[in-house]
């Protein structure tokens, strides 16, 4: 394979992987605190719609981003209220959030369909972008892609190297012990869930303001679900998550590129590739149940009842 084509595939994979990375990063934080939120798709769609609306009406992309994060957090807030305060089943509540978010975003965004905004443009970083191969790969993206690099670094640092990260993990592993130590479990989980919502909103805004700058109903087309499996793929580790997101990017871009250079493979088969990759990864991970058990936060998806001692 020639270098140029290889580079094009990698650049496209980073662009395709970025929304997955953003939303999965948020879910990872959320799951680290022991909360499983299956509402990613709904939060993403609300983020995409709100972000587009904000940018369209104000003409200011930054305001769009802000609104997208707020919309994601509001959705996450509903989830938190139900699952953390009222102790509803997290799986069912998350599913409901997805259905609610896709319906509500379609409803609220109906009048925006067909409008356009000038989305984020790539910014070449001087000098760095001139490095052969690495330059175009890493230093010629739009601000959201750079932002995702920074967020990965911050998340890694917070989760692994700070006291706050330790608290987060303690709550996810054993909320009752954490509670006994004086940690406010519900508060920590609230922060984690809301952070997840903000990330999902940002991922949605990446779709509607950068990737395909427009708003259309259901435009995230299942990316929230792929992100959920990515977290498992990454065994709840930030570094692996980044690799996983770009691998998925490659999987979903590769068949389009291959066709362009003249391979004839059934489109049905090719379109399956990202999902086949998901299943394969799941099988590999679950083939080692001990590692799986060690990686997952112990109290994932279990409600915390402060009255129990």
């Amino acid at each position: 394979m020639d270098m140029e084509l290889f580079q094009q595939i990698l650049v496209a994979a980073i662009k395709t992987g970025t929304p997955l990375l953003l939303v999965a990063l948020g879910e990872l934080i959320c799951e680290k605190s022991g909360v499983l939120n299956l509402g990613q798709e709904g939060m993403m769609l609300m983020g995409a719609m709100a972000g587009f609306a904000g940018a369209y009406f104000s003409g200011n992309l930054a305001l769009g981003l802000l609104l997208a994060m707020v919309a994601g957090m509001m959705m996450a807030g509903i989830f938190a209220l139900l699952s953390l305060n009222l102790n509803t089943n997290q799986v069912a509540t998350g599913l409901a959030l997805t259905i609610f978010g896709s319906g509500l975003s379609a409803f609220l965004g109906a009048s925006l369909v067909g409008s356009t905004v000038n989305g984020f443009k790539p910014i070449a970083i001087p000098l760095l972008s001139d490095i052969p191969f690495v330059g175009p790969l890493l230093f010629n993206h739009d601000i959201l892609v750079y932002g995702s690099f920074v967020l990965v670094a911050i998340c890694w640092w917070v989760v692994n190297k700070t006291r706050a990260g330790l608290t987060l993990r303690a709550v996810g592993e054993n909320p009752y012990s954490a509670n006994a130590l004086g940690i406010k479990v519900i508060k920590v989980r609230y922060i984690a869930v809301l952070t997840g919502g903000a990330f999902a909103g940002l991922a949605g805004a990446y779709m509607s303001l950068s990737y395909t700058p427009m708003w259309m109903e259901n435009m995230t087309a299942g990316r929230g679900w792929i992100a959920l499996s990515l977290v498992v793929f990454a065994s709840w580790r930030v570094g692996y998550l980044m690799v996983g997101a770009y691998l998925f990017g490659v999987a979903s871009i590769l068949h389009l590129v291959m066709q362009g250079i003249g391979f004839t493979i059934s489109p049905n088969l090719l379109a399956m590739m990202p999902y086949v990759a998901t299943i394969v990864v799941m099988v590999i991970i679950s083939s080692n149940p001990i590692r799986q058990k060690l990686a997952a936060p112990m109290s994932l998806a279990k409600p915390f009842d402060s009255r129990r001692h």
């Binding site: 084509l5 259309m216 435009m219 087309a221 389009l256 590129v257 489109p267 090719l270 379109a271």
Partner: peptide, 22 residues
Amino acid sequence: VWVNTWYDPGKEADAANALMDQ
């Protein structure tokens, strides 16, 4: 390039970009 859908903005854009890359 076959995308196997009538409507998926993200994928349609991916396909267009893959074609323009080539």
